[in-house]
């Protein structure tokens, strides 16, 4: 029973990280209708920036995290403006390839700046205490990750439903043309979406490296792909869907590794994804789209 609870908590923690990354994917997809494959690499950049702040400049953890968020936000806006905006009218495949190119570019820039050797992320960042509940121990990293996830979810839900910019984002995702006719600045809205997604990616990067402290230029790619599947799992374009998909995916992964086979953990995750999509082709919380002839 203790092992079960332990796994469940680990799963929730990993799932929270996936969920935060998946939010970035799903928001960008919902609004710009593109798969931003470079998203995983923004996670990596965020983690490296926080690493530099902690290791080299001895900044307090919160400042390092904020710095990572600021850098990633600027990076996200720059990438969107330089590479994706010129392709707004292009086919989705062209944008996809550009995003892949961007992902290679970020990975190789990181390789040049920080080298290929894996860096060990400073463990003191959020691992300051452990909580003992009977025989159950929960590390602070796990707690903070889950807590951050809840806070982000509530904040984002409020943001998209209450603020003017949030409403503009929902309009653009519903019908870009109509939104433009209503006087919404589509380009600015998309930029803001990228900014929020990238800032979340930075948070996810720091949390990811606090729990799994190996940092290298490819650190972001596998969590990126998993989070992308999480977004699809929950129904791409839907914010609660990304949350649910991310958490379920994390729990399934940890349970699969613990009870079925360590080597087959990823295969189990992807198999569950396929089964869900076959039963519900638009994901768990995705809206079915009617086709008009």
């Amino acid at each position: 029973m203790m092992i079960f609870l332990d796994n469940l908590i680990n799963g929730l923690s990993l799932g929270s990280i996936y969920a935060i990354i998946a939010l970035g994917y799903t928001m960008v997809y919902g609004i710009a209708k593109m798969l931003n494959f470079a998203h995983g690499d923004i996670i990596m950049v965020g983690a490296y920036i926080a690493f530099c702040g902690l290791q080299y400049w001895n900044l307090p953890p919160v400042v390092a995290m904020l710095m990572a968020m600021v850098v990633c936000t600027l990076l996200g806006i720059t990438i969107e403006g330089l590479a994706y905006r010129p392709l707004r009218q292009a086919t989705s495949l062209a944008v996809l390839i550009t995003a892949i190119g961007m992902s290679y570019l970020l990975q190789n820039l990181a390789l040049m700046i920080w080298g290929a050797n894996p860096k060990s992320f400073p463990g003191t960042f959020i691992n300051s205490f452990t909580l003992h509940l009977g025989r159950l121990t929960i590390s602070s990293a796990t707690l903070i990750t889950i807590l951050a996830n809840v806070v982000i979810m509530i904040a984002l839900t409020l943001f998209t439903s209450r603020t003017k910019i949030g409403k503009a984002m929902r309009c653009v995702s519903e019908d870009r043309g109509a939104a433009q006719l209503m006087g919404i600045n589509v380009n600015r809205t998309i930029s803001i979406t990228f900014a929020i997604g990238s800032a979340l990616a930075a948070v996810a990067g720091v949390l990811l490296c606090s729990s799994y402290p190996i940092l290298q230029p490819t650190t972001g790619s596998m969590p990126g792909i998993k989070a992308f599947t999480a977004a699809v799992f929950g129904g791409i374009g839907s914010i609660p869907g990304a949350m649910l998909g991310g958490i379920l995916l994390g729990v399934i992964e940890i349970f699969g590794k613990a009870y079925i086979s360590t080597a087959l953990g990823d295969a189990i995750v992807f198999a569950v994804l396929i089964i869900v999509l076959l039963v519900k082709p638009t994901g768990l919380l995705g809206k079915p789209v009617r086709e008009k002839v």
Binding site: I225, V232, I236, A263, A267, F270, L273, L277
Partner: peptide
């Protein structure tokens, strides 16, 4: 049976499953 991006993600998943197996 799936379309568009969903088809893409499922083929991606199958590729990863094959590699895992």
């Amino acid at each position: 049976r799936l379309r568009g991006d969903y088809l893409a993600i499922v083929t991606l998943a199958f590729g990863e499953i094959i590699r895992n197996l």
